[in-house]
């Protein structure tokens, strides 16, 4: 389920936390980075690895919005629509993205390339409106800039 490098990192983590349960979030991140999402089998694997219950891992995965319990598109576009972004035109960005990709917020394109999500404040209020694709932030957006981001990713 996890690569050698990740397993080695887990050994290191054991020296940083007094319990294995505390490693739930870091280990789930490793799973998601390697597999794109966290399947029920992966949750079972993490539970066994950390000697916690499956229920515990399931509870954690479903509590935090960034863990994907099911497969999502190759590119996950997250658009902030909270107040600061809204005041600077995030509505237009959403409209443009939905039109360009042919999907609505919360949907994944049929070919599995794009997933579009509405997210809460990402801390880009001074450079609003914004969207994130993976760890990358795209800021001070306008429809033209959105086009160039999509073209780059395609």
């Amino acid at each position: 389920m996890l690569s050698e490098a990740s397993l080695q990192k887990i050994e290191e983590l054991k020296t940083k936390y007094p319990t294995t349960q505390a490693m739930t979030l870091p280990v789930l991140w490793m799973v998601q980075e390697e597999h794109g999402f966290i399947s029920p089998e992966a949750m079972k694997y993490v539970a066994d690895l950390l000697k916690v219950s499956y229920g515990h891992v399931f509870g954690v995965v479903t509590f935090y919005t960034m863990y994907n319990a099911r497969k999502i598109g190759k590119h996950h576009i997250e658009v902030c629509t909270n107040v600061s972004c809204m005041l600077r035109g995030s509505g237009k960005i959403v409209e443009h993205l939905e039109h360009r990709l042919g999907i609505k917020m919360g949907e994944t394109s049929r070919d599995g390339t794009w997933t579009l999500s509405e997210v809460e404040c990402m801390g880009s209020c001074g450079t609003a409106p914004m969207c994130a694709v993976g760890e990358e932030y795209y800021e001070n957006l306008n429809p033209e800039k959105v086009d160039s981001v999509l073209n780059k990713l395609q």
Partner: peptide, 26 residues
């Protein structure tokens, strides 16, 4: 130790942050 959260505003509340660090729901 740098610890990365996973998307939950509530974890900025100090006691939720501690639960999250312990590997729990926030």
């Amino acid at each position: 130790v740098v610890h990365k959260g996973a998307g939950a505003y509530i974890c900025g509340e100090e006691s939720a942050l501690m639960n999250s660090l312990e590997g729990e729901r926030g």
